[in-house]
Design a protein around this nucleic acid. Structure first.
Lengths: 312, 312
DNA sequence: TTCAAACATGACTTTTGAGTCATGTATCCT
DNA sequence: AGGATACATGACTCAAAAGTCATGTTTGAA
């Protein structure tokens, strides 16, 4: 049946793996950082596979490589196959499967991480690998099978399939009461002119979310110069909790916030910004890896609950 | 990601292939007939895989081997993987895919073979491999992915999924006019007592079909001692065409029969016997190998037409 | 135009696993 | 009991592929 695959030699798992690692990393150099030997080896292994299949798997693009259509297909094929073999191996040893979940950094922090134990349980005690990513590449990662699941904005997914709605991404402005003079109403505090003199904390992770907040502030005519520029929005929130700063946060990030000490108001300038967050998955993967629809639904439910439940 | 698969060595495509060939053949000896070297090699390759995965893949059963559950799973995994690699290879060379169709010997002869050119066309010019099999093992072959399609009796399939009805399997008795005295009506000729002195031709291929005919004759009180016992029912039909013998044939087998010279009557004793023939396929395979539902429907339709159309 | 990064290649050595052969052991059949 | 069948194993040889190192080519950027 498969004589042609073996009759002339040249096809080995090592070679397939070498090619795949380049395909996943996007370049040979990134597939084997600081290892010139391995790099030259991968380069050669790719050539050997190209000879075997008699097809161009990569194309030079600038001084790095990109995948040809055939290469992209072969790469995702190999990923599936190695994944299946790995699942088999782990199963036989009684080890749990391992799933990859991708999301933007802030969603990971606030939505995914708190839900991780429950998600792992739903997936049969699986090992979970969380992968921070920009939403653009998330949809791609799912469709290529590099991630089993992703949590991202609905509008970042081309097709409307394999999607379950989670929560609406809204934004609030959080101001510690101690920064608000006596007698200032919610209405007054919601007005941009009131924000002018507040000390703000902002995330500066270069993510879309952070950029959107800055843009919205500019639109509202506020000269937004945060006193603290934190590495992540999670850190900004800590400053809010400490009563030191105000901050614009995604509504997701309110778990455990003390409403007596912190006034939480809708952040009008970004009213139209947030689309719904969804749980997205790769149908082909979940089917192959025996994750059934009810499990995925339960995962979505537990992600929704995570937001609603009071924090620890 | 897949370090564990490669860090200690021991996993190679050759070994996986060796194991799979044993799994498909049912024993090492049958996987490599008359090749003691290859046999010892396969035996060793299986052991090496067992060491790698740290699991028993085979069990001794008498003096031959059978698969453990893990072995069965691994074998079907490997088959899929090699199949995908082979599909990829052929695609890149512009070669057609190759599909396996299983059916009982008589169904193959009368239903499948005449439809083959059209089926191949529907499957994108695919190479078709036809595989004669008893119906019991057919359903199994499909579910294990050893066959992509099968044509078999509906009741031979456990689940009712991935099935399209084709034709009802009915039986007729065919009697050359020259063996029928003047003035004998259809009604008279349909009566078992009339058959007593006819020279019959029978297939004796040991298939269920042949056995069922013999049992039905016995039930009808006919001392059924065919004059000719042919190797296949197709040969029996030739004798009917020649005007030498009468025979009980499946209604499928009437294509091109000259109704002026041969009287064709329903064979009452087997009225309840025939269940519907269906086209059955492996959903997982067809999905993976990109055969869409409409193609399968078209295949079923063309198989039905094959029976209805006049023969060449 | 010069440099460094990213990949390619030639010319090896080393390791692994495929392939061969002789022989051993359990099981079935007669 | 005796022989044949089916698989297992030890002890090799040989080929293929992995791994190493030096060096070459192309390309982007300073």
């Amino acid at each position: 049946m498969f004589e042609k695959l073996f009759s002339k030699g040249g096809l080995t798992l090592e070679r397939l793996r070498g090619f795949m690692s380049m395909a996943e990393a996007g370049s040979i150099a990134r597939a084997a950082p600081d290892d010139a030997n391995r790099q030259s080896q991968i380069s050669r292994q790719i050539r050997e596979l190209e000879e075997f299949f008699d097809v161009e798997l990569t194309r030079r693009k600038g001084r790095t490589l990109s995948l040809s259509p055939a290469g992209a297909r072969l790469a995702s094929l190999i990923r599936e196959q190695l994944q299946d073999l790995e699942d088999f191996r782990r199963d036989q040893r009684g080890l749990p499967k391992s799933f990859t979940i991708g999301a933007g950094a802030s969603v990971l922090e606030w939505l995914v991480v708190p839900a991780l134990p429950r998600l792992a349980e739903l997936l049969g005690g699986a090992t979970l690998l969380i992968q921070p990513m920009r939403s653009r590449s998330l949809a791609e990662a799912v469709s290529e099978g590099r991630a089993d699941f992703a949590i991202l904005r609905r509008d970042a997914i081309p097709a409307a399939k394999s999607v379950l709605p989670l929560v609406k991404l809204g934004f609030v402005i959080c101001i510690p009461e101690r920064l608000i003079p006596q007698g200032v109403s919610d209405r007054q505090a919601s007005h941009p002119s009131f924000w002018r003199d507040l000390p703000f904390a902002a995330g500066r992770d270069g993510g879309q979310l952070d950029l959107a907040i800055r843009a919205a502030m500019a639109d509202a005519g506020v000269d937004y110069r945060p006193r603290f520029e934190c590495g992540s929005i999670l850190q900004a929130r800590q400053l809010v909790d400490m009563g030191e700063c105000a901050a614009v946060l995604p509504a997701l990030g309110l778990r455990g916030m003390d409403r007596k000490r912190i006034r939480v108001l809708p952040f009008a300038p970004m009213k139209g910004y947030g689309r719904g967050l969804v749980l997205h998955w790769n149908e082909r993967q979940t089917r192959r890896r025996a994750v059934d629809a009810s499990t995925i639904q339960a995962m979505a439910r537990s992600l929704v609950l995570t937001v609603r439940e009071p924090g620890p």
